[in-house]
Structures are given as structure tokens and as C-alpha cells.
Simulated assay, not measured.
Amino acid sequence: MPRVREAEVYRIVLPFGRRSESLLVKLTDYAGMTGWGEALAPHPKTFSRLEETLGALLIGVDWEHPDTLPASDPAVDMACWDLWTRMRGVPLAHAIGGDRTSLMATVRLTPDTSAENLVARVNQQVCAGYGHVTLDVRPGWDVEPVRAVRQAYPALTLAVDGGGSYTDEGQLVALDSYGIEVIERPFAVDDPYRHASLQDQVSAAVAVEVRSTSDLDDYLTLRAARVLLLRPTAFPSLTEARRAHDRAAAAGWDIQCAGGQGAGLARAATVAVASLPGCTLPCDVTQPPRANQIVTPIVGANAGVVAVPLTQPGLGHTIDEARVRRLAKDHARA
């Protein structure tokens, strides 16, 4: 039975790329076992809230399972799962029901200055072993670049991600003629009716990203998509993310796990969830910069394949605590 002796919270700023923030939670039990969790782009008040409440929530409290603790924060939930599975010597992937040893990965390519440059970048990724590419599209940057990539690579599996930037179906319907597998996040997430309209008009599967099972239920009821873009760290707990997986899979949807940002812990949790049986599409944990990661081995793809760590308990990675301390802008201990 876990019993936390010490809880720590770090707010770190990642040094490369967009210099985004992560909030890290470290839990230590009375035997010296540790568990770590990460929340991405935390609310500005989250650090101070956890500084005030984490000790009362966990210090000296006996608990049987992470699900028995009151909802607090995704980073706390992840740290509890990491500690609980490390104590039992089992990988997190197995503990939540995963059954895969490796995952196919997609690589995401942002808009470029020209379609020709984009094709050259696709060529680099294909040569690196990727067989699935996701192109970020926006109004004004969609049909031409997708056409160019498709002409250069007729057999390449392509997905597009609208990032919620579209307000009508026109250009997205036009993309369907280029053999797109999935159209991710075409519209604002609070517009299931427009998603349903698009899904009725295209052969590609529409993918929606939601942050709760209740929002997912709205899409399932309307048959407004055929793919769940599952970002585990966007849910309040890994159990809730698993619940969304179960509902989407039961409805016959495909599932893609995504989570390529952060310092490595959130990516590791994404890989664990992506090993669930319903996650049938290539996962997205490959966004750079990899140099931001504080875990060993780093989480990412090799020749388009992501390994699921099954020989180590918990999240399956070693934390560089010295680097965490160097990156920390705030630190609290309870």
C-alpha cells in the first residue's frame, strides 16, 4: 500500500523550441521509491495551488490504487500511477491494459514557405523510415501542398490536421480527393454538428480531440467523426483517458494517441496509453525538440517505430533530477 513521505512540485521552462512550461510532481514513499508526473502548459495558479494542497492530499495517507484518490491534477495522477506501478514492478502500459511492444508513429510537418519545400521535408522523413505523415493545414495552405505531396508520394499514408482553424467544409472536402486517411480537428471542438456534416461528405475519417468523456458522448451520439484523437494529458486522469478509449473503441472508432510536447514524462504516458488495443492509428509523440526531454531513454520514434518500455516498471524511464533542478523556475516541497 503506497504511503507518500514527501511530495515535490517543480515548474520548469523548457530551453528549446517555444520555451514552453511544464509542471512536474515527484512523490517519494517511505521506502525511497519515487513516482513522477507532468502537466503541460499548466494554469499560472496551478503551482501555488499544489504547493498549498498536495501535502494534505497525500502525505502519510494510505491508498490502495490511484483511482481511490480524489481528483487533483493530471501531474499528480500520473505521479501516483508511476509510484504505484514501480512499487509493484510492472510497466504502466500493462497496468492500464496495454498489450503492445511497439507502436507505429506519424511525423507531423508544419506549413512551409512553398509546396516544394514541404515535399523536400516529406522526403527526409520517408527516408528516415516514416510511412505515415501528418500535414498541418490551414485556410490558404491546404489543397496545393497536399496535392504536391500526393503527386510525389502516391502510396504514402497521409493525414491532415486543421487545428480547429476552418469554419466551412469546402476546402476540406476538396482534400478528400487526394486519398487522405484522416482529417484531424477541422473545426472548433464545440461544433459537433459541423463535424458531422463534414463526415457525411468525405471518405476520410474525421478526427476530433475532446477533453472529457461527456464531450466525446456528444460526438458519438451524432456520429460526427470516426477517429478519437486522444491526448492523455488533456484528461484529468489516466483512468478517464482510458474510459474515453473504451467508449470510442466500443463505438467502432479508430483512436490515435498524441502528446509530443513536454519534458518526456507526458510523452511516456502517451506511449503507455497508445499501447491499448483500441489505439489503431500511428501515435504522435515525435514533435521536436527531443533535447527538451529530462528522461532516459528519450521518448520518440526510431525509423517510424516507438518502443513501449516493458522491461522497466512505471513509466519506464530514468529522470535526470539534476537537470530538473537546473530548469526549475519554482520548487516546493511538502
Rank of each mutant, 00 (worst) to 15 (best):
Y153Q: 08
Y153V: 03
P154S: 14
P154D: 10
P154H: 13
A155F: 10
A155R: 15
A155G: 10
L156P: 01
T157M: 11
T157Y: 05
T157N: 05
T157D: 04
L158Q: 11
L158S: 11
L158E: 11
L158P: 04
A159W: 02
V160S: 03
V160W: 02
D161S: 08
D161H: 06
D161V: 02
D161F: 04
G162Y: 00
G162C: 13
G162A: 14
G163S: 02
G163C: 08
G163N: 08
G163A: 09
G164Y: 00
G164I: 00
S165L: 15
S165C: 15
S165R: 14
Y166L: 07
Y166V: 09
T167A: 13
T167H: 14
T167I: 14
T167M: 06
D168M: 14
D168P: 04
E169G: 08
E169A: 14
E169L: 13
E169D: 15
G170K: 11
G170H: 06
G170T: 06
Q171D: 14
Q171W: 02
Q171H: 11
Q171F: 06
Q171I: 06
L172K: 02
L172Q: 07
L172M: 13
L172D: 03
L172Y: 04
L172E: 04
V173D: 08
V173M: 13
V173S: 11
V173K: 13
V173W: 07
L175C: 01
L175K: 00
L175T: 00
L175I: 00
L175S: 01
D176W: 12
D176P: 04
D176A: 07
D176G: 08
D176Q: 06
S177A: 15
S177L: 03
S177T: 12
S177R: 02
Y178M: 09
Y178R: 02
Y178D: 05
G179N: 10
G179H: 09
G179A: 08
I180K: 06
I180Q: 01
I180C: 03
E181A: 15
E181N: 10
E181G: 03
V182A: 10
V182K: 00
V182Q: 07
V182C: 03
V182G: 05
V182L: 11
E184M: 15
E184Q: 15
E184G: 12
R185G: 07
R185C: 13
R185K: 15
R185P: 07
